[in-house]
Design a protein around this nucleic acid. Sequence first.
DNA 1: ATGTCGTGGACGCCACGA
Length: 259
Amino acid sequence: MLLATWNVNSITARLPRLLEWLDDTRPDVLCLQETKVADGAFPTAEVGELGYDAATHGSGRWNGVAILSRVGLDEVTAGFAGEPGFPEVEARAVSATCAGVRVWSVYVPNGRELDHPHYAYKLAWLAALREALGAELGASDRLAVCGDFNIAPTDQDVWDPAEFLGSTHVSAPERAALTELLDLGLTDVPPRALKGRPFSYWDYRAGMFHKGMGMRIDLLLLSRALASRVTDAYIDREARKGTGPSDHAPVVVGLATES
DNA sequence: ATGTCGTGGACGCCACGA
């Protein structure tokens, strides 16, 4: 099974690049974040022509997540029990069962600044996610939590740790929240970089991509039963190049067929 | 690094979020 995650920064703006990438890569399952589209306006027909079903959870201008699958899409759930809001609950999580794997697509709140209410929201959201995932792991040992976590797990996951002192994405509480997710029995699969360092996000501004100034904040967290099946993992930086890219690149993981 | 995108209001720029 080929499983991938990609923050597309508007599926409407990214549709040509998305369809091209799907056709080239043919993942079995693709988790999307920042679709920025209401469910009724999701390009269901366009992805359907390539053989994908879509589970969508979006409300319009901000956020929005989805799961595309060509191996089945069952037991779709939008959001999760106890999910905090800001102040209203936002479209940041959707889950589905695809070929026996419980797949979550998550878009963790950004946090903005360490002293901003959005940062407290981010930590509360991660704590609630942990509770929900604990329940999921009680029900299935094949769990994949994929998405934009807006956390760089270690200092190796940012282009220059000194530049991030006092910033979100690298703070000890955020990293502790991620560690608590991993302590449930999930593995942050380390991806290969096709060139340079394995970053998944580069700001649009100031030529950051071409200067290699990125971050690894898009993660696939796999339960032990899935992590033991990983055959390859890579970040497709080609998708960050060219005309009209997202500021994120897709992260792709290959899983061996169960023996 | 604050240099660019994307969205939508009521525009032909601005505010906001990232």
